[in-house]
Design a binder for these strands. Sequence first.
DNA 1: CTGAAAGCGCTAACAC
DNA 2: GTGTTAGCGCTTTCAG
Lengths: 344, 344
Amino acid sequence: MKQPSGKVTRSDVAKLAGTSVAVVSYVINNGPRPVAESTRQRVLDAIRLTGYRPNGVARALASGSTKTYGLIVPNIGNTFVASMAHVLLQASLDHGHVMLLGDAGDDRQRELELIHSLLNRQVDGLFYNSVDRHPYIDVIKASGTPFVMLDRVEPQPGVSMLRVDERQAAFQVTSHLLSHGYQQVGIISGPLDMLNAQDRIQGWREAMAAHAVPVDESLIFPASYTRQGGYEAAQRMLAGPGAPRALFASNEGQAIGAIRAFSERNIRVPQDVALVCFNGTDQSAFHVPTLTTVRQPLRDMARCAIAMLQNWNGEAQLQEFPHYLEIGESCGCMPHKENNATTI
Amino acid sequence: MKQPSGKVTRSDVAKLAGTSVAVVSYVINNGPRPVAESTRQRVLDAIRLTGYRPNGVARALASGSTKTYGLIVPNIGNTFVASMAHVLLQASLDHGHVMLLGDAGDDRQRELELIHSLLNRQVDGLFYNSVDRHPYIDVIKASGTPFVMLDRVEPQPGVSMLRVDERQAAFQVTSHLLSHGYQQVGIISGPLDMLNAQDRIQGWREAMAAHAVPVDESLIFPASYTRQGGYEAAQRMLAGPGAPRALFASNEGQAIGAIRAFSERNIRVPQDVALVCFNGTDQSAFHVPTLTTVRQPLRDMARCAIAMLQNWNGEAQLQEFPHYLEIGESCGCMPHKENNATTI
DNA sequence: CTGAAAGCGCTAACAC
DNA sequence: GTGTTAGCGCTTTCAG
């Protein structure tokens, strides 16, 4: 008979099984002491009968581990962030950890609040993707909690970090556009004070140089990493003189926003403007047109991030991952499945 | 001087402040006993000096509350789920609670594992959106943990639930298409054994009846609630005879997948096929074309869900929310900003 | 207003 | 192989 409420404790089980509480623990934890098979069965039966559920809070206090990780993100509504969260969640569960999710709602103050909150709750480790370029690294360090930065920040001693070479990826993706023959490639960048925005712009610059194309600073359109940001940036671009025929959007949301803005002016992608973007998700493959995008090996990154926390020794661990270019229709070098000769 | 690690405990603070540990608690918790202002300051200083961080696990054990909620979702990669998670996270934080996020990865077994995991961790309450129509309600009930179902399930005693009248919403959205003059409206439904899929199909049926249109069962295309599902369903629809010129997709992902499939056959939305969908997110407004979609008042729902947990008395609470139809371009009754006379 | 002390439910020595 | 018990760090009652 299951109890109506979760008030059953380990000593109830012990009583019913006719053993001591220690034995119950040994059974539950498969150690650290052996238990006779017959006793073990009695305990197991008692657990079933009582509907006993080990109190994780008490276990955490006694054992010193919560089996919980924390994840701080700017906004779970961002599709790339959600993809990252998804793989981290899966990988953590594989290691027996659940995740406390802190969604900062793009608010710096809230982010700090959340960090304290998760730290107080004694997470075994923290994955951290900051709202902006001023992550609260000191706070986390002071707590002694293992943590991994998921986005690029100023290199610092004692800060572990995952990253892809965004400068190189930006170089590659811009070069891809240039190789199509475009002489002008615009860039919708992230907020200029963010390092990953700088990296991407830098790669863009280098690609222009490599192709002997003069860099036109007016082709940089800073925007937030959102659909709205991309939408507005594209509008600004169209409002100005000499809008480029090729464009590099710094994330998938911006790309989609830009395409929306274009469509409102009857500008087609890729026929009128070739487009590539960063950090595409599965969404890119279903978009019309499909998006040419730089993708990151998220699954590997998640596994690595967890390994970093587990092998934590207080020293910084840097792990760089390869990116890959997923060619879609948006850059124009693929046969476009869609055309305008329509019948049904 | 902050300590290098999180080993500072309350008694360290007490020692430094020259008080007892109880007083430190009184200061931290603003009660339950008053503390002299001067003592209070000494304690506060000691806390600052030591870098003391209250141990949430110990607090939870002693106080009986973890200040943590749990959220079980099928997959955080689904944009609608992510939107829901976002608002719940924000609302929870407003009430001082953090969230343990359980992402089942669309796997029933994993979902159960997660439920046990969160329950063991003594969450103060659980928000539950099941992978399929067989939610593990008994497990949660047996634990005595307050919980709210976020999706529609078989009405049961003792099960609180949020919902919108999906039958009615489906009726409305289908009627909207019919009012445009279409005689045939297809439906990409969810998996047929899910209640919300049945509800939506039922509303679709009733709308046909209300408009005196004979119901053609072959126009029901069951699919998973994903872009891939919508894509495949649309392909099936196009492969069959008499593909309808109007279509109701059961969620945003399906709609986007369907549009992709259409575009590959040079079928335009809304010119060739009028489309509406359920549970659109902000994404719908940036899509080309913008999507006509049924939206739910997520923010209100989140607040309500939390209130249900807080006022938990073991009795089922049912709360129904109004939906609203957001008219976009995809159904064809709006001036389409996009056209095909293109120049740049 | 402050201090002492009894738990909270469990882990893991340490005994036997 | 099993039982006893000292913590884990905190909340809160009960005495001063």
